[in-house]
Amino acid sequence: MQTPFEILDVADDANDDAVKKAYLNKVREYPPEHSAEAFQRIRGAFELIQTDKQRRKYRLFHLEKPDFQYLLRQSLRPSVFQRPDANTLLGALTEGVIDGLLKSQAIE
């Protein structure tokens, strides 16, 4: 789960101006008419940390619910696509083919 600071792409100790600037940049990048869902997230994040008091409240009373899958995906993100050799590819490609065909027969 991303924090509002991550959503707006600002530092945790950003001030009002920096937060507003980041928000406007994000809105330009994801305008509501083209990316309604992304805009909602951006707007929600901005409303949470718009002022100094809000940012303090966020830090004091808010902890993003830990998202294990997100953490894992972040670290398991494949960086480079590594090409398999012909035998590995062929083995995996042909392995489930008969089962797939028989499954489709059972469905019919």
């Binding site: 480079v80 590594q82 090409r83 398999p84 590995t88 083995g91």
Partner: peptide, 8 residues
């Protein structure tokens, strides 16, 4: 094996 190879 294939996925591990591709994703490194």
């Amino acid at each position: 094996g294939l996925v591990n190879k591709i994703n490194g």
